[in-house]
Amino acid sequence: MEQTKKTWIDYYKKFGIYIFLAVVFVFFAIFAPNFLSSNNVINILRQVSMFGIVVVGVSAVMIGGGMDLSVGGQMAVVGMILGYLMVNLNLGIVPAILIGILTGCIFGSLNGILAIKLHMAPIIVTLSMMLVLQGVAYLITGGYPITGMPEGFTRIGQGYIGIIPVPVIIFLLFVVFGWIVMNKTYLGRHIYALGGNKEAARLAGINVDKLTIFIYAFTGFAASIAAVIMVGRTNASQPGAGSSYPFDCMTAACLGGISISGGEGKISGVVVGVIILGILDNGLVLMGVNSNFQSVVKGLILLIAVAIDCYQGGKKKRIK
């Protein structure tokens, strides 16, 4: 018999993220000094822009039933390559960015190929890739950061168009692109189908292998764009960049309603999840809270979000 009565989980899935956003916003508006100002809102958006771009990519992978923990390592290597090309080899900004993006796509594709060939949970494969890429990032310059980017490059990370920072504009464009792909194209539907039931998708005629590689390549693309912005923001390529991204991206995606088991979730929810984490980071700093405590809070958020998702998944199976 089909369950018609809505449970609290159904309401949570539909509205919970927005309620949580409102609660967090009001809390910090009351308790964090100087939180409620247009400058601070711009601040928050700028700080989450790089992270948000990567989360869009990771969300696509998760909706497709996979996971990518190597995004931080990809960002670090791409950032180092960017710096090396522009500073050490005096390559122009545009060619360097294009090579960086290509590198990111290659790393992403490699993740997809390994996930397919090894028939192992992508989370383990990408965990291994994360280790390898972290090591490679340090090898490029022996651990030294590369500084002194060309004039004009830093505008990508520090510039404005009107009153809106450039990273925020790139982030918004990415979100719109992601939303269109996932909601208005066959590609998006195929990704949902892949995450919902891989075998059924394959039997329906979807080339699951190619699609998997494409999704991971897209995440690599997202990571490379984020790396470009990060290098622009800090005016330096750091081998340790992106170290906290794997965990934070997963937290934002799960908070935004992306199901761990795949096939569920919306880009709009992910954006809200990203903004919530941005508000938390910003608000806790304004309140003078220890940065490690912020990580504890994020860990608890991830646990609760995944627990609810798994509980709902288990209930659905029991009802069937």
Binding site: M50, R233, T234, G240, A241, S243, S244, V285, S291
Partner: peptide
């Protein structure tokens, strides 16, 4: 401010 571990950014 406790700026935390050496996290880039």
């Amino acid at each position: 401010v406790d700026i935390g571990k050496d996290v880039v950014g």
